[in-house]
């Protein structure tokens, strides 16, 4: 199912590893991962979930972030491929959603109604610990992950975990907690900014996200920094469309 060349794949791995830079922004990084995976697999939707201190999976980034899709991620605190991958530490792949209502009575019908045919989830692992999951949705029947694809995707998920935690050798659980809490709080900042922009400019929260990300990219600024300015400085809200 992975459709890109070896060269492109190698570039993506280097990009994932390149996190020890001054401009590193956890939100940008998480979005970059979901976009690269979507590109790699030609999947219509990819999401990342991270576990909080109660082992609840929180949605932190999506290759697109419409409300229905976010709901699909949220449901997986109760059931679904992400919860399974998170608990077992093993990938869940090639599940035909039309035949999964018995396994996931809430998640499967919701995913089918959203237009998806298949689903996959990869645990984000750091040694024996699972800190979250990568979720891939497919909309074309029969396009399955081969065994080599699963190996590549799992390696990518593990590399992304190390990159996300920005620590080559995490010896203490403390660093993990610090970084995860920071990442989860960054996610809240973007939601607050989406609300502020949606209200100020009379657009939907989904569109607000696109606008914020577009602005950050155009001006070469970090997503977290832009989102934070939008929430704490009323002036920057007006600048967004000028």
């Amino acid at each position: 199912m992975i459709t890109v060349s070896v060269q492109k794949l190698a570039t993506i791995f280097v990009e994932i590893a390149d996190t020890l830079v001054d401009e590193f922004d956890v939100l940008d990084y998480m979005h970059m991962i979901t976009e690269r995976v979507a590109y790699l697999t030609e999947a219509p939707a990819v999401g990342m979930l991270l576990a909080d201190q109660h082992s609840r999976l929180e949605f932190v980034a999506g290759s697109n972030e419409n409300v229905t899709l976010v709901e699909l991620f949220v449901v997986q605190n109760e059931e679904g491929p992400c919860l399974e991958a998170f608990r077992t530490g093993e990938p869940v792949v090639n599940v035909d959603l039309n035949n999964a209502a018995g396994r996931w009575p809430r998640f499967a019908p919701l995913a089918v109604a959203t237009g998806f045919r298949s689903v996959h989830a990869f645990p984000m692992r750091l040694r024996r610990q699972v800190i979250g999951t990568l979720n891939v949705f497919g909309d074309v029947a029969g396009r399955e992950f081969e065994s080599d694809d699963v190996t590549i995707m799992q390696a990518l998920a593990d590399a992304a975990t190390i990159g996300l935690l920005q620590e080559r050798a995490i010896r203490h659980g403390e660093t993990l907690t610090e970084q995860l809490q920071g990442a989860l709080n960054s996610r809240i900042i973007i939601e607050q900014a989406k609300g502020a922009v949606a209200q100020a400019h009379g657009i939907s929260v989904d569109d607000a996200f696109t606008v914020i990300r577009g602005y950050a990219r155009k001006h070469n600024r970090r997503l977290t920094e832009v989102a934070n300015a939008l929430v704490t400085d009323p002036h920057s809200l007006q600048q967004l469309f000028t």
Binding site: F59, E191, Q192, K194, G195, A196, Q199, A200, V231
Partner: peptide, 14 residues
């Protein structure tokens, strides 16, 4: 849920 924080941003502007 995410809506809480989105609403917070909206009410801030309102």
């Amino acid at each position: 849920h995410a809506e809480l924080f989105q609403a917070q941003g909206m009410v801030m502007v309102q």
